[in-house]
Structure formats: C-alpha cells, structure tokens
Amino acid sequence: MTGGGQQRRAALVASAVCAGVVVVAWAATTGPVAVMSPSGRTRSFAPAPTTTSASEPTMGGTSPQELARGIPPAHDLSWLGDLIAWALVLGVLALALWGLRYAVLHRWRRPPPPLTFDAEPLPEVRAAAALVEDAQQRMAALQEGDPRNGIVRCWMRLEESVADAGLPRKAHETSVEFTVRVLHVLDLDPHAIGELAGLYREARFSEHPLTEDARTAARDALTRLQDDLAAARSVR
C-alpha cells in the first residue's frame, strides 16, 4: 500500500471514531430518545378494579392491592442500562486510541535516497584492459631490431601498461617484480610470465649475444599471455 492510501485509510478511521464519540456524547446528554413513535393506540397497565367481597378481610378499610402499591419491585434492572452505556463509551474510546495509534504507525515517510556508488572499474580490470589494448604494439616492438632490443622494448611496454592501471607498487619491489606480481594477480599463465620475465632479464643484463631463438621464445610466451587476457576479458 502506498503512503497516500495509508493516510486516507487513517483519516477515515479517525473520522469514524470522532463521529462515534459525538453520537455517544449526544445520547448521554439528551437522555432517552423515543425510537418508535406512538401509533395513537394506548395500552393501560393499571390493574383491573377488584371488588372486595364481604368475606375478604381488610385492614382499616384498605385493600391488599393498595397496601402493595408503594412497595418497590424485588428485582431492579436499571443498572443494566448504565452498564451498556459505559461499555459503549469505553469501546468508542478504545477505538479512538487504536485509530490514533494506527495513524501514527502508518504515517507516510519519505523514502530513503537511492544508494549511489562509484562505477569506476577496479585497478585489476583497468590493467587487463590496458594490456589487451596494447597487445599489437608490444608484438610490433618485439619484432623490431635485434632480438635483445626487441625483447627489452616489449617488456618495457608491458611495464608501462601495468603502471598506467593505477595498481599500488610496494616499496621494496623493482619494476620487474611489480609487473610480474600484477600479471599473477590477473591469473595469467605463470609459465609464460616466468619465461618472458627471464628473457627480459637475460636481454637486459647479460653480455652474450641473443639469437632469433630467444625472440621466438619471447613471442610464444607473449602470445599465451595475450590469449589469456583476451579470454579473461570476454568472461567479464
């Protein structure tokens, strides 16, 4: 039931209660009211005259009927009308209190404002989206130049995509450790992550030349990572 319907129902109940109180008060102050008007015919309840026989004893010339005329009846039921009147008054008062309580409990209240929340995607979701969008550029960077420079440029673009997602970096983490941790958070192939990170360290810090086999291995690892990213994004 809506707030307006509840208010109308409470108002009707309160009006009925007030009308009942007014009727009872009016009846109590005006005294008895003749509900049925007389039809013109009267009925006398006076006792029929009796004749006293000569043999019926009398007391000082007074008949027994005359002597019993001033004696009140044995059963006085006048209290029953007062009891009914008080019961009606108490019933109306109880109904009035119930109506007021109902109106207070069911009064209309302003609905609470709708809950709002920030729809900005989580950092992990932003990181996955950035890695998917930059997939072709990373693969192109891997193919440029000699194998050593291609692997380094590919990994550097991977670090930039992860850093732009806004994930917090721990104080003791290097850029490589941070990137590896984020890739694990995204639930990507751990073997591909470890292989690509190892090739980057070898290309960055070693002095021996790298062959095309290293580039091919890096390309295979990068392809598995990008396939996992695309599959995870399609599920979301």
Rank of each mutant, 00 (worst) to 15 (best):
L188H: 07
L210A: 05
P112C: 01
R110C: 07
D164E: 14
P123L: 12
L199P: 00
L225W: 02
F205N: 12
A192T: 00
L183C: 10
Q143M: 12
A103E: 05
L188D: 02
A141N: 10
D187Q: 15
E159A: 11
A203Y: 13
D228A: 13
K170S: 11
A141I: 00
V180K: 08
V185N: 08
P111Y: 00
R224S: 10
F178H: 08
A217Y: 08
E120Y: 12
D146Y: 07
L225G: 08
D146C: 11
T211Q: 13
I151N: 08
L131C: 00
P121Y: 01
Q137A: 15
A221E: 03
N149Q: 15
A135N: 04
D164H: 15
R169K: 14
D228G: 05
G145W: 05
E160N: 10
D189Y: 03
E212T: 10
Q136S: 09
D134G: 14
R169T: 07
I193D: 06
D134E: 07
F205T: 09
E144R: 09
S161M: 10
E207T: 15
P168R: 09
A230C: 00
Q137K: 13
Y102E: 08
I151K: 01
A163M: 15
H191I: 03
Y102F: 12
A218N: 01
T223Y: 07
G150K: 02
L115W: 14
A218I: 01
A197W: 10
P147K: 06
L210E: 07
R219D: 11
